[in-house]
Computed example of a mutant assay.
Amino acid sequence: MIHLLKEVGRGKRGARDLTYEEALQAAASILGAEATPAQIGAFFIAERIKMESVEELEAFVKVSREYADRSFLHEGIDCAGPYDGRKSSFFSTLATAFVLAAADLPVTLHGTPSLPPKWGITLSDILAAKGITGPALAKDACIRAAKRTGVLYVDAEEWCPPLKHLRPIREELGMRTVLNTAEKFVDYSHSPYITFGVYHNTVFDRLSRLIMKLDYRKAIIIQGSEGSDELFIHRPTRTYRIENGKASLQIIDPEAYGLDVPVPEIGWTPSEQADATAEVLLGKGDLAFIYQVLLNGAVRLQLADKVRSVEEGIYTCKALLDSRRPWELYSNWLSLLIESTANGDAVSPMVRHASQ
Rank of each mutant, 00 (worst) to 15 (best):
120 G>D: 08
104 D>T: 14
261 V>L: 15
124 S>L: 01
288 A>V: 08
308 R>F: 05
345 D>S: 13
232 F>E: 14
306 K>S: 10
236 P>G: 02
343 N>Y: 04
234 H>Q: 12
356 Q>Y: 14
296 N>Y: 03
73 L>T: 11
313 G>Q: 06
62 K>E: 10
166 L>S: 04
2 I>K: 12
161 P>V: 12
279 E>C: 03
229 D>I: 07
84 D>M: 07
121 I>Q: 01
274 A>W: 04
50 K>E: 01
208 S>N: 02
170 R>T: 02
116 P>G: 08
29 S>Q: 10
197 G>W: 13
39 Q>L: 10
320 L>Y: 06
66 E>S: 04
260 D>P: 07
147 K>G: 12
176 R>N: 03
193 Y>P: 07
341 T>M: 02
257 Y>H: 07
191 S>E: 15
171 E>Y: 14
268 W>N: 15
235 R>L: 04
21 E>D: 15
173 L>T: 07
264 P>M: 08
169 I>W: 02
13 R>T: 15
29 S>E: 13
299 V>L: 09
235 R>Q: 11
71 S>F: 11
42 A>W: 00
52 E>I: 00
72 F>C: 13
320 L>S: 08
112 T>P: 02
203 V>H: 03
332 N>G: 06
79 C>T: 14
41 G>C: 04
310 V>E: 07
281 L>D: 09
2 I>L: 08
138 A>N: 08
163 L>A: 09
272 E>C: 11
115 L>I: 01
352 R>A: 12
202 T>F: 12
109 L>A: 05
287 L>T: 13
352 R>I: 02
107 V>L: 00
166 L>H: 04
116 P>H: 10
182 A>P: 02
240 Y>S: 07
